[in-house]
Design a protein around this nucleic acid. Structure first.
Lengths: 142, 142
DNA sequence: TCTTGACTTAGAGCTAACTCTAAAGATTAG
DNA sequence: CTAATCTTTAGAGTTAGCTCTAAGTCAAGA
């Protein structure tokens, strides 16, 4: 059993346009075509799409995703490169998560700030709540 | 005391080009100029840049960052909008974090997979370790 | 004063990742 | 068999966010 490009697109939350674009960019060398030229996505292809989505969703550029796919097509000799790639990606994701943690603190501060401002209808927040000023200094000092 | 565009850029990890681009896009209406036309960034301006970085770094498009800056310039009447904006952004960051968590599980799976493959020099991982196949099914089922 | 380097503007160019169009061929429901 | 709805290709267009250039102005050290 296989899926048309439209069905495959729906399954992974992309458009058929995007899948064709990925194919053109060389990201889908594994997708075969029917005798009449239509792309036929197998279950295994859908899994490929999911791992592509995983890498793209964690910020890896399409070019590097293509590099990974190319390695996969080359065979067992590239196993170390592929392993290394996922280790690097894990590192990047964890760094990014740490960054977001810091950003989130600033956002939480702003929420507290504007909640007080909204309650009183003005921005004299630090006069009412000097501790918040301390928090601001701590968060924005760098 | 104030900073030139180059100094300000260095302080927030951007280039002077980028700061000029932001200014052109209306993100820095608060930055004043000297009598001879040079931008002079104050400590407070640097803080603005940091909050812009925070919003950009959590994926808010420049257009919406500009919207926020515009609200700030309009005065106290827009406090509710600004509060709401940060609440929404917090929500987005937390959703994104959850997504990354899921992606990270897949990446960790791939690391385990390729570690075994690298150790044995081939991809017969699931024959050696059927439990990993179960994990794969769980992670990629959707 | 001269030189060096940073700054100014307007505007062109670039990259990533789509997004869409047109014209033609394939598939499917009735 | 036909009409509607896919799918195909090549290629143009779009958007966000820079990134760079040119030609000129300004500032600071020897």
């Amino acid at each position: 059993m296989s899926y048309s490009i439209g069905e495959a697109a729906k399954m992974v939350g992309l458009t058929a346009h995007t899948l064709r674009f990925y194919d053109k960019e060389g990201l889908l060398p594994f997708v075969k075509k029917t005798s009449s030229g239509l792309r036929a996505f197998t279950e295994s292809d859908i899994e490929w799409l999911k791992i592509i989505e995983c890498l793209k969703g964690t910020g890896l550029p399409l070019k590097q995703i293509k590099q990974y796919i190319d390695w996969c097509m080359e065979g067992d000799a590239t196993i170390p490169q592929r392993l290394n790639m996922f280790i690097e990606q894990k590192k990047r994701v964890e760094e990014q998560k740490a960054k977001w943690e810091k950003h989130l603190e600033k956002i939480n501060f702003k929420i507290k700030y504007y909640e007080d401002a909204a309650k009183h209808g003005d921005l004299n927040v630090f006069e009412r709540n000097p501790k918040l000023l301390e928090e601001k200094k701590r968060l924005f000092k760098d």
